[in-house]
Design a protein around this nucleic acid. Sequence first.
DNA 1: TAGTAGATTATATTTATTCTAAACTGTTGA
DNA 2: TCAACAGTTTAGAATAAATATAATCTACTA
Lengths: 142, 142
Amino acid sequence: MAYSDQYIDKLRKSGLRPTKQRIKICEALFNAEKTFHFTIKELVKIIENQANIKVSLATVYNTVHAFMKKGYLKEIPLNASQSYYDTNVTHHHHFFDEEENKLIDIHQDDVDEINIKRTIPGKKIRSVEVIAKIVSDNQSQK
Amino acid sequence: MAYSDQYIDKLRKSGLRPTKQRIKICEALFNAEKTFHFTIKELVKIIENQANIKVSLATVYNTVHAFMKKGYLKEIPLNASQSYYDTNVTHHHHFFDEEENKLIDIHQDDVDEINIKRTIPGKKIRSVEVIAKIVSDNQSQK
DNA sequence: TAGTAGATTATATTTATTCTAAACTGTTGA
DNA sequence: TCAACAGTTTAGAATAAATATAATCTACTA
Ligand SMILES: [Mn+2]
Ligand SMILES: [Mn+2]
Ligand SMILES: [Zn+2]
Ligand SMILES: [Zn+2]
């Protein structure tokens, strides 16, 4: 299993023991062709579908938090009651489709440099993220 | 009470009955010199401090939602477990101080126009908001 | 001023997330 | 090789924000 080995390495290098559960979660998150956005509930479903082993909910939460701390996942702020996570950890922005409750990546290059002409004394900016909320365009019917 | 009258008007014009509770909540939200950000828990505290009448938690939630629907409040997306609300309903951006868990307004004029060179077919942009996360700057000691 | 739609309230419920503490397992070094 | 142990998993309990319920109350109007 080439993938497993790769994840075992990744986990070991991160100081995380490569357990069955964590390797399974790595496969669910990082085997995908493309990066994607997910909630914990959705991730649990993905794991169940690819299931040969069972992973408890607490472990899913623990692992997602551990991976965030290591920089393998990002949390996306949305005005929802549940957290959204992103396997794309590069600096980028989002459309949020309010009707379908779906996040769409906007590549950094697709947004002109954001220049904030204001500073807070003693503080520095750690990240700058844009969320553009989108809805159906019904004007374009004519 | 000039303020009360003003809020009674505002509520009536919005099709909301001007109840004692709603007027009280208007006073808590809109008497302030400056706009501000709050959580439900904080709003409940503000009301309690200015208290002459009691307002139940359910009514606070109901009223905040009603005011949002009318455009008197905005919800601010943060990766927190509770919703933040804003009495500043103009288009603006935010610093989020991750250490103090505090939002700071950035006036629209303090951010250069945000140009997104990408569209989603059949969708239009409803809003574009920037969140800049800030942390203590310890490099600047020298 | 009575009737009614709308509003408030205490309380129960829902649901995402975190905590607990017992059982289990990957790692290490003797 | 394997015992020991720190790290991990787990079921289930706890927490807390938010919403639902349904009985009571009240602002409005005719
Ligand atoms: Mn979290
Ligand atoms: Mn809400
Ligand atoms: Zn993304
Ligand atoms: Zn604001």
